[in-house]
């Protein structure tokens, strides 16, 4: 029987499944970070394939900043129910009590408290020794150098200058008590690969990726969606209904919408193929400084 070599997507798929299985086999208590976005959807889809006919042998974790789009939360709950998975939702209680929010505390202070600190808190609370993330190397410069098994010390810090060499598909999973790894099964996927795969496999994604009339305000040149009544409307701003969609999803006050008529998957892919800006441009937290992602990662950010 003749068998053809794997094409690009099939090769990426197999590589990701290998990584996911390796983490499940080597670690005592892994968890999958589920951020609800398109990359998480692909990672979860691959995970279901990796263990079929078993269910994934680890839970999902969503770090809820309490400022996610309502549609994301609904999609999350529907997905977990549809697939019959175990989901842990964690929020930084101290942050909630102090009412830490993106408007009064700035994007970096808020992100540190409600994302980075909340994540570390959750990992410590449940004693997870490995956490999957959906990050890709093509997203950002410091990601391009990160290992598939990315070692973190006991305070969750990343040391970019002291990474373990990673050869072939043989991953070193040895850690001491309290240390952990972040595992990135989508390391070698590009944004286009992700969309092609979603299209080929018919993977459900949050409707916010598709263009629809949504209430937005224009702020500092960006369109911010008014997702609930907590969004302060500044003097001179007006809430208008515009045909918009999102290229990436996060906390609604920090995620810029783009005007678009792309309301089908092919239309989204078309937009992406002829786009002149990179996908993270819509994320306000990446705008602080060109080394900002590396700084955040050293502190324990995914």
């Amino acid at each position: 029987m003749s068998i053809d070599p794997l094409n690009n997507l099939r090769q990426l798929e197999a590589e990701s499944i290998h990584i996911i299985r390796e983490v499940a086999a080597e670690f005592k208590n892994p968890v999958m970070l589920y951020s609800i976005g398109k990359d998480s959807s692909v990672m979860l889809h691959l995970t279901m394939k990796a263990f079929y006919p078993s269910k994934p042998p680890f839970p999902l974790l969503h770090v809820d900043t309490t400022w996610k789009f309502k549609e994301m939360i609904k999609f999350r709950d529907d997905t977990v129910k549809r697939l019959g998975l175990n989901l842990i939702v964690h929020s930084n209680q101290e942050g909630i009590e102090k009412n830490i929010n993106p408007f009064d505390h700035g994007s970096s202070g808020y992100t540190h408290m409600m994302k980075t600190e909340a994540l570390k808190e959750a990992l410590d609370k449940y004693g997870f020794d490995a956490a999957f993330g959906g990050a890709r190397r093509d997203e950002e410069k410091s990601r391009a150098k990160e290992r598939v098994f990315s070692f973190r010390n006991s305070s969750h810090g990343w040391d970019p200058k002291n990474q373990r060499p990673e050869l072939w598909n043989t991953y070193n999973a040895r850690i001491a008590q309290g240390e952990s790894i972040r595992a990135f099964p989508l390391s070698n996927w590009t944004e286009l690969d992700i969309w092609q795969y979603i299209l080929n496999e018919n993977i459900p994604i949050v409707p916010l990726y598709f263009a629809a009339p949504r209430p937005v305000v224009e702020r500092e040149g960006m369109l911010i969606m008014v997702d609930d009544e907590r969004m302060p409307i500044l003097p001179g701003e007006t809430v208008e209904e515009r045909q918009v969609r999102f290229r990436t999803l996060g906390c609604y006050p920090l995620t810029a919408a783009l005007e678009s008529d792309a309301d089908t998957l092919p239309a989204i892919v078309r937009e992406m193929l002829i786009a002149r800006t990179s996908e993270r441009e819509g994320r306000l937290i990446d705008h602080d400084d060109s080394g900002s992602m590396e700084k955040k990662k050293r502190e324990g950010y995914f």
Binding site: R137, A144, K145, S187, N188, L192, E294
Partner: peptide, 23 residues
């Protein structure tokens, strides 16, 4: 474009393996 980490940009050299993608 490809010299990712802060430290190596300051030193003007590449010090680790970086992966890049194009099609």
């Amino acid at each position: 474009l490809v010299d990712g980490l802060e430290a190596e940009r300051e030193q003007g050299i590449t010090i680790d393996v970086a992966y890049r993608f194009f099609a």
